[in-house]
Write a protein that binds this DNA or RNA. Structure first.
Lengths: 186, 186
DNA sequence: TTAATCATGTAACACGTTACATGATTGC
DNA sequence: GCAATCATGTAACGTGTTACATGATTAA
């Protein structure tokens, strides 16, 4: 249910249209949650059904009409209830799900050269990720000037640090893995 | 489609029943992919439809009847094709999806004490994970004596090292995060 | 005597992705 | 002139979870 709660969290900062929510989602939550616009619209519909938000149509002449979503008191309660019950998500946070590791597991069916290619490709992706992390810091700096709340932005930065820590861990792991393969007699 | 390919990979080691596949999955692939028995049976059905495997009913008197699945040549081809086309999964491997980080992001809506509780709970989970990693090494050691293929088991160990690397990275990150919160004026 | 193991599944639901549709305005 | 932005969605499909059903054997 975290997509719904992510949307609640954003709407708690202020009313937005689905389009704006989609952009805010990409700018701020993308490093740990991804969602397509079509899914966001569907979830907003469901959330309106729960009474978590209300929507108001805004007719525009120059641009397409839009729909402004506003969080209700019920929605704020739902957000706070969720924030107070983190148990399930912590177990979940420990769980890795990776098609890439599935490939590594079965890489013994292919050649060592092919396996090394796979690991080198991962290595490049880690490096690219480390570089791109800067964009996240910039996005937070932008939001910081809008929301002006040091308490909030401290947490935002902590989530970004996670991405950095894990890109670096990936790099160290893949170098270790490459070393193991190179030392392997074959 | 990785669940299907994981099952193909296991069946490539030898014919198994759905029940045995479910156990083999838990023992060997669990650290990076999880699946419920009900889903495994559904996927096996679909895979039989693709011609990737055949099944044979085995009638037992003392125990429930079972169904033995055997990989076909078409199935082996599908496995090899998948192993040769890793591009998509590497981008995917870089993506974090974490309800836990969503909570951290919005933790500014709660008290600092609540946020610290959340981070400490994560810390404990990381420590528990580090300890449990040993069980994975034991499982591989067992399979090693059965499959007797050093080339394969090298890759198995590499996937386990990933879990260790990421538990440790998680620990370092959370200690950094806790330090940031403690230094925060509030 | 209670739980675990063996062994299979179905049905409903929840969540996520892909492809498609519409059509005006603005910047390069 | 072409791509991007603005702004909304629907339909179909794919993947994953939960709850349920059956019923015998074996180990603590």
């Amino acid at each position: 249910m975290s997509l719904k709660h992510g949307l609640l969290g954003l709407l708690n900062y202020g009313s937005m249209t689905g389009y704006e929510l989609n952009k805010a989602f990409k700018d701020s939550l993308f490093s740990f949650w991804q969602a397509k616009a079509s899914q966001i619209y569907r979830e907003l519909d469901a959330m309106e059904g729960y009474g978590w938000l209300t929507s108001r149509r805004i007719i525009q002449s120059e641009k397409p009409n839009k729909r402004l979503y506003t969080i209700t008191n019920r929605g704020k309660e739902a957000l706070m209830d969720w924030l107070s019950a983190p148990e399930a998500d912590i177990a979940d946070a420990m769980r890795v799900k990776s098609a890439f590791l599935m490939r590594v597991f079965f890489a013994g069916e292919t050649s060592k050269a092919q396996a090394l290619d796979l690991l080198h490709a991962y290595r490049e992706a880690c490096l690219a990720n480390c570089r791109e992390m800067q964009a996240g810091h910039d996005a937070i700096a932008t939001y910081e000037t809008v929301v002006k709340d040091e308490k909030k932005s401290a947490y935002w930065k902590i989530t970004l640090l996670y991405g950095e820590a894990f890109s670096q861990a990936g790099l160290q792991w893949v170098d270790q893995a490459i070393a193991i393969l190179k030392e392997m007699e074959s």
